[in-house]
């Protein structure tokens, strides 16, 4: 394939991944890597390197919009970033020491989880809770807008959330993804933070987490400029477009279709990993 054809195809695939990732709320990175490795035969190390920089672009690019909505909690995000950045460093070092087959299989399992997530119906809001002693000491509770009024919420189980966040960081560093889903689970389920606050704070954390493993990826040659250029521009463009449409369309059918695609990619990724083809 010539350089221009390859660049064009990469750009188109990445733009579609970024667009669907934003519409379904699952993020672009999780489909970019299997699309590159399975459809285009790109080595998985180039794919996760390109995916990682795209994740930073969409996270930082969307920050302004999220802050304006008034949902994200910077104190929670910053505290948990100690865990995610350490996890990301560990994951990135691990990534250069285990085989690409193992990375493919772990990636497949993460895709399975993402597929399950998209088949599940929309998340119901749980009751807000009172802060426990540690969270009160750390002043993690805050307020967020509900139907135009500010409602206060508390935070619980910081140690459990912190441990889960280390895992989220490790996955991010190992696979070059944002691992927003695990971050949301840590905050929403373990720490009982309102769902809206969890998702927006997670987005804020994704870029910082990814930046922690970017140095390792770059120095190992995972970030190839010829691959990362069209992928980063494509995912960013697609995500910005998707975010613009998101406010108008409720995308439950799309989530189902997307879930099926992700499920197929998961199975193929795991099979290829086991057969040693990736």
């Amino acid at each position: 394939m010539t350089a221009s054809a390859f660049t064009l195809i990469l750009f188109a695939v990445s733009a579609l991944a970024g667009f669907l990732g934003a519409l379904t709320g699952l993020g672009g990175g999780v489909v970019v890597v299997p699309a590159l490795t399975l459809l285009l035969g790109v080595d998985i190390r180039y794919a996760i390197g390109a995916s990682l920089v795209s994740v930073i672009a969409t996270s930082s690019g969307a920050a302004a919009a999220y802050v304006r909505e008034g949902f994200s909690n910077i104190r929670i995000g910053m505290l948990l970033e100690i865990a995610t950045t350490l996890g990301a460093l560990a994951g990135a070092f691990l990534a250069v020491h285990i085989t690409t087959h193992a990375i493919a299989i772990i990636f497949g399992l993460v895709l399975l989880q993402a597929a399950y997530q998209s088949f599940k119906s929309e998340h119901g809001a749980h009751e807000t809770v009172e802060s426990d002693t540690l969270s009160r000491k750390l002043r993690l509770g805050s307020t967020y807008p509900v139907d135009g009024e500010m409602q206060s919420y508390g935070v619980r189980n910081v140690p459990a959330g912190f441990s889960l966040m280390f895992g989220a960081g490790a996955l991010s560093g190992l696979l070059g993804i944002g691992s927003g889903a695990v971050k949301v689970i840590a905050m929403d389920r373990a720490m009982r933070i309102p769902f809206k606050v969890s998702t927006t704070t997670s987005n804020f954390m994704i870029g910082v987490t990814a930046a922690a493993s970017a140095g390792v990826y770059l120095s190992r040659g995972y970030v190839d400029p010829r691959v990362a250029m069209p992928v980063m521009l494509g995912v960013l463009g697609g995500a910005l477009l998707g975010a613009r449409i998101l406010s108008r369309a409720r995308a439950s059918t799309l989530r189902m279709v997307f879930g099926l695609v992700v499920l197929a990619l998961a199975i193929e990724m795991i099979a290829n990993g086991i057969l040693g083809k990736v």
Binding site: M1, T2, A3, S4, F6, T7, G41, V42, D43, R45, Y46, R220, G221, Y222, D224, P225, R226, V227, M229
Partner: peptide, 17 residues
């Protein structure tokens, strides 16, 4: 990059840093 190397054959099947 494209202006200079658009016609070059590329392959990223094998990883070399």
């Amino acid at each position: 990059y494209l202006a200079q190397q658009h016609g070059q054959p590329v392959s990223y099947h094998v990883f070399h840093p």
